[in-house]
Design a binder for these strands. Structure first.
Lengths: 246, 246
DNA sequence: GAGTGGTCTAGACCACATC
DNA sequence: ATGTGGTCTAGACCACTCA
């Protein structure tokens, strides 16, 4: 991105002014001009700075809000989203703690591996680049409920390499934000059905071959780059999901 | 400002003007003032008729568009939605026909039953009111893939009572719209996991006890009233779903 | 009370679809 | 050429938050 003293929105190739403004703000947010959780300038400020009417600014900000990379708070300001914070995976299962507390996590293994072609493609890396492969179990009230296998490109998460397995936090995404400056803004989960292999079944305290729901997740940063591949297994008999159509 | 005159009571009870307008339009659409698929008046018309600015009308219409009960088409007009049309249930499974054709349906049984308390509550009827219970199988390339159990309140669907099982169309919702004047605008699916009983397994050509995904659907008309309860069973090994989070 | 986002106005012009 | 929704302006005032 180039640095300009005066913003130039006048000549978009058939793109609406508010869309251009939204794109400009999007890039600035990704570049870190405003930190996660911080407020972006007030709408009147933006209107003056970019030389557009207030309504145009509002339309641009509404776009970013709809994309989830910004949140408006009446009377306070517009804030860069803090990102997802983890327990959302539980929405696919009926697991519940006594006090509805978030699940804990226990890392079993963390090793450095080389990316295969498909993985590298998804993560925007080159085949053979280094990555961290993490196996962990999520627990609720001390009982294992999910088995997870994470893949994180080392280029973005060098800081995690030396982290002892005992010091990984329960919630991965806030930890990624704090230690590596990466905000997870969006995630996509692919659900399918299968049976547990012996190793995974042992982790979950279930019989081998037990029916299970498999969740393949891709997590994306504010710029839309995929920064995590994750496969999660959970007991199918606890599966439960709600989808709306219109 | 505790007592005294309430500032905003002149036009509405603290509700924004565009929200009031949206509600007004919503009711008119439900009441059938404009048929499904027909255009509502132009924005300039609405602005004049209701005595508000054009921007206010646009905001109200945007609300209805976001709710899916109206669709805007640049240069043509704003149209009342035609409603859902059926094959959407397939999005939970990997089933695919050779030419990606929609599934056919074969009705096995259609009987009149009395609603139990929970069913009546969901359907906005009284306990003991009459309803149609329909068992049907959905087929793809001649192979059974889904087993369905529908519950339709007779009050809304009297026209279906005398319909021979052989004359039910493949797609239920367009048929409901045509024969009963009911538009399905929205549906909610609850997914869970289970095992097939002997009767359902036989319908699907699967062994008894085979793992299956169960989908409990509620379908709603334009006014938000639930007009169908449906339970669908499908082979779990064909299960597949994608969910996005932000 | 100062600053923020939320609502609303009364215009103007543009892009698209249809005749 | 006409009518539709889409964009944009330059204001005004309201509702909320916080010092």
């Amino acid at each position: 991105m180039l640095e300009t003293g005066l913003p130039n929105l006048a000549n978009g190739a058939g793109v609406s002014r508010y869309a251009q403004l939204a794109q400009d703000l999007r890039q600035r947010i990704v570049a870190g001009e405003w930190a996660a959780g911080a407020a972006i300038p007030a709408e009147t400020d933006l209107a003056e700075r970019f030389g557009v009417a207030l309504g145009t600014v509002r339309q641009a900000v509404a776009m970013l809000a709809a994309e989830g990379i910004v949140q408006r708070v009446h009377g306070k300001g517009t804030f860069v989203t803090q990102g997802l914070n983890g327990p959302s995976l539980l929405r696919f299962f009926r697991f519940r703690g006594p006090t509805n507390e978030p699940p804990t996590a226990r890392v079993h293994r963390c090793q450095t591996v080389r990316l295969r072609a498909a993985e590298a493609l998804a993560l925007g890396q080159q085949t053979g680049d280094a990555a961290l492969r993490v196996k962990r179990v999520r627990l609720l009230a001390g009982r294992p409920v999910l088995a997870e296998d994470l893949l994180l490109p080392l280029a973005r998460f060098e800081a995690l390499r030396a982290l002892p397995t005992g010091e990984w936090e329960d919630l991965l995404y806030p930890m990624l934000a704090r230690l590596c400056g990466v905000t997870v803004a969006r995630a996509n989960d692919e659900l399918s059905f299968g049976h547990l292999d012996a190793a995974t079944a042992a982790l979950l305290d279930l019989p081998e071959g037990a029916p299970a729901i498999r969740v393949d997740r891709q997590a994306f940063d504010l710029g839309g780059q995929c920064i995590e591949l994750r496969t999660t297994w959970g007991d199918a008999t606890a599966f439960h999901y709600s989808a709306e159509m219109r």
